[in-house]
Design a protein around this nucleic acid. Structure first.
Length: 460
RNA sequence: GGCCGGGUGGCGGAGUGGCUACGCAGCGGACUGCAAAUCCGUGUACACGAGUUCGAGUCUCGUCCCGGCCUCCA
């Protein structure tokens, strides 16, 4: 079982071979903390969380280092602070805390390191100095710029031709640039803007240098996987490559993994369209595991249309698996040992084929339902749980899943009505039993009568 | 204009040459006091046109349509 990943650099799937199997290293571009995480931010988090879990399965839990940064210095943050008239640190602290809470709610494991840009300024300054010394960057007008023409391979990752880029450029070229494609490594800050002292005066880093410095600090100059959204390929990742390769005189990331874009109800998500959806808003509609499955039921490189219907379908699908789970445990969390079926691992090893993985989960759940003996059901459940857990799904007990959502009626009241209905049924008073069931249905509670006189309930 | 990706059944969504996934919805049946849940069965597809091949959603070329990026953006 060999992991194959689609490498953007080659535009092809290739077998994954880590530099050091005892320490597989992955870097993923994290959020700029100026606002609540939206559902588009959640996609790479969930995808690379699955990749992280898979790598830990293959190479061992202690043998994978996952770094995801926090960008806490950025002009959007400055703008948000100005708009709300609060200190910048307040914005970044509150947004970071919200981000952690939201990512935990969608079941993402925390990365091994989560460096902040503001904690990595000396490393960035050092890298910029190296680039100037080596003739890859120059100071001009308080700025430091990367000289794109000094790097022969510039444009290789994004497959862009420099001259064509400039011809198609939409933005006015800043006067201090020697060449229109040059990009900012360091820019001056006025008194009201966050800044750090540097050889070029008080200023702040450009966006791209952050990731070059933070990845180097925690993963070394050359590491295995660099991930992010495909919209980052150019300019962000292209520029990271240029900075890192030129400063370190060593290869940068070996595998570039990019997830596809996300639309909402068929439209690009944007503030101007007013269709921004935060993770928080979606968590009001469905549990975190439903959000995860809604993300994973489409292959990560495909475009994904996020919709209420799709989220609802994912919630139902997860519900079916929990129903199978309940078939074995009666609602409690399973205490036995689960195992990942080889076919399931193989699906994920094929460039994270999560749609195929989802199909297998349905098959394992089906085996639970159709198995003839309790022992056979339990074997099937071990497969279901081992597989689902690898995707960060089925992490709670069935009762937790079915009963934790809020609704019009409290669980205690629901249980009371169910007891009354059971009594009515025992007395063959079906009219009363049906009246209670209708009453519950009106309150969004669906009943499922199970063998042995047990009645289960769930929210519609 | 350049680069990249996509067009599969009512909907979602896999599938890089041959065995016509899978899920949801629909329909029929079993089970049930009736439902719900579950099980069994069942119909519908590969944007269009050429080509390669014994054989093509799957490879090649062309056409049409949709989306992303082109120095703010997961």
């Amino acid at each position: 079982m060999t992991l194959h990943l689609y490498n953007t650099f080659l535009r092809a799937k290739e077998p994954f071979a880590p530099i050091d199997p005892s320490n597989v290293r992955m870097y993923v571009c994290g959020p700029t903390v100026y606002d609540l995480a939206h559902i588009g931010n959640a996609r790479p988090v969930i995808i690379f969380d699955v990749l992280y879990r898979l790598l830990r399965l293959i190479y061992g839990e202690g043998h994978v280092t996952y770094v995801r940064n926090i960008t806490d210095v950025d002009d959007k943050i400055n703008a948000a602070a100005r708009e709300k008239n609060v200190p910048i640190a307040e914005i970044t602290a509150a947004t970071t805390a919200a981000y952690h809470a939201d990512m935990a709610a969608i079941g993402a494991l925390p990365p091994d390191h989560e460096p902040r840009a503001t904690e990595t300024i000396p490393e960035m300054v050092a890298m910029i100095e190296t680039l100037i010394q080596k003739g890859h960057a120059y100071a001009a007008d308080g700025h430091v710029l990367f000289a794109v023409q000094s790097f022969e391979d510039y444009g290789k990752l994004s497959r862009r031709d420099q001259d064509e880029l400039i011809a198609g450029a939409r933005v006015e070229v800043a006067p201090y640039k020697k060449y229109p494609g040059d990009f900012v490594l360091w820019k001056p800050s006025d008194a009201d803007t966050p800044g750090w002292d540097s050889p070029w005066g008080r200023g702040r880093p450009g966006w791209h240098i952050e990731c070059s410095a933070m990845s180097k600090k925690h993963l070394g100059v050359t590491f295995d996987i660099h991930g992010g959204g495909r919209d980052l390929i150019f300019p962000h990742h292209e520029n990271e490559v240029a900075q890192s390769v030129c400063a370190n005189a060593a290869p940068f990331a070996r595998y570039w993994v990019h997830n596809g874009f996300l639309t909402v109800e068929g439209e690009k998500m944007s503030k101007s369209l007013g269709n921004f959806r935060t993770v928080r808003q979606e968590l009001e509609k469905a549990p975190g595991e439903a959000i995860r499955l809604a993300m994973l039921k489409t292959h990560y490189r495909q475009p994904l249309d996020w919709s209420d219907d799709s989220l609802k379908e994912a919630r139902e699908a997860v519900g079916k698996w929990y129903r199978a789970y309940r078939e074995v445990t009666g609602g409690a969390k399973y205490e036995g040992e689960a195992s990942v079926p080889p076919a399931f691992a193989a699906a994920l090893c094929d460039d994270l084929n999560t749609p195929e993985a989802r199909t297998l989960l349905d098959a394992y759940a089906g085996e639970v339902f159709t198995a003839k003996t309790p022992a056979a059901k339990e074997v099937a459940l071990k497969h279901l749980l081992g597989a689902a857990n690898l995707l960060g799904l089925l992490t709670q007990g069935p009762d937790d899943w079915f009963h934790s959502e809020k609704g019009a009626l409290e669980p205690a009241e629901i249980e009371r009505l169910i007891a009354a209905r059971i009594a009515a049924r025992k007395g063959k008073d079906f009219a009363e039993a049906d009246r209670i069931r209708d009453e519950l249905a009106a309150a969004g509670v669906i009943l499922e009568d199970r063998p042995g006189g047990v009645t289960e309930w769930r929210r519609a």
